[in-house]
């Protein structure tokens, strides 16, 4: 597969006053992949994402998204991306169906709310308020709002943080479906098991630097080839496998 960059970031720098949050990072995201930005809290994941999304100004560097320059073509970029913010709320007192209609108006696109809610299995919650949803449902609803404008790329900022194992797996399935339908996905997380499972390629971000970009398998193979061994013999299953096995994989509401 010829890898075609859909996002190119070159020497991105972001200073908040005296504090330097992003210290010159460069990477590419390929069309049709799930790209993971991994790193501990405060690494600069959200900052990087929001600069690409045209929601924050950069200090310096060059970024193109689907051929558009973030400095000159912000409006064009907004048309082709879908954005899930790390902690965004939704317009108060409206139900899910009305919120989708609102976003349709904001994007200038005609979609039926049910069609969108169906994609994330929330049709039975059409009349519910966002604040009354469970954590996993909230994230799935957020993802539905990112898909309204048929985006080329969606950005998901820590969508699984705080979710239980079932809800996490359920969301991974949804994200894979979105990628399989042809949408590029950029996701941030600090869970390595999640990245290993879900991402086609990952970039490690730490203290405002990128310290490695590759496929999860390649990183692991490299480490093993260097002679690394886990201190403790790896068991064939872990406690999460036990939990999933005992409680079942199906999605829980609540």
């Amino acid at each position: 597969m010829a890898e075609k960059p859909i996002i190119t970031v070159k020497n991105l720098v972001k200073n908040y006053g005296d504090f330097s949050a992003i210290k010159g990072i460069s990477f590419e995201v390929y069309e049709g992949e799930i790209f993971g930005l991994l790193g501990p809290n405060g690494a600069g994941k959200t900052t990087t994402l929001e600069i690409i999304e045209t929601l924050r100004d950069k200090t310096s560097g060059e970024i193109t998204v689907d051929g558009f320059n973030i400095e000159t073509d912000a409006d064009d970029i907004k048309q082709v991306i879908g954005v899930q913010l790390q902690s965004a709320g939704y317009y108060p007192n409206l139900n899910l169906s009305e919120l989708i209609k609102l976003f349709c108006g904001l994007y200038g696109i005609n979609k039926s709310p049910m069609e969108m809610l169906e994609k994330v299995a929330l049709t039975d919650k059409a009349r519910a308020k966002y604040k009354d949803l469970s954590g996993g449902q909230k994230q799935r609803f957020s993802i539905a709002t990112t898909l309204i404008n048929n985006p080329r790329i969606i950005f998901l900022d820590e969508p699984t943080t705080g979710l239980d194992p079932q809800a996490r797996r359920n969301l991974w399935d949804l994200i894979r479906e979105i990628r399989d339908a042809g949408t590029t996905v950029v996701i941030t997380t600090h869970y390595m098991d999640e990245a290993e499972e879900l991402c086609d390629r990952v970039a490690f971000v730490d203290g405002g630097h990128i310290i490695g970009i590759d496929t999860p398998n390649h990183f692991i193979d490299e480490l093993v080839a260097s002679g690394f061994e886990r201190k403790k013999q790896v068991k064939l299953a872990n406690l999460e496998d036990v939990f999933i096995n005992m409680t079942g994989k199906e999605w829980r509401e609540g």
Binding site: L55, I81, L85, S87, A88, G89, F103, Y107, T145
Partner: peptide
């Protein structure tokens, strides 16, 4: 104030509005 604090407006800014 609440649209600003709950980042509703920020989410709006990610659309062409």
């Amino acid at each position: 104030l609440s649209l600003r604090l709950t980042l509703v407006i920020k989410r709006f800014f990610a659309t062409p509005v």
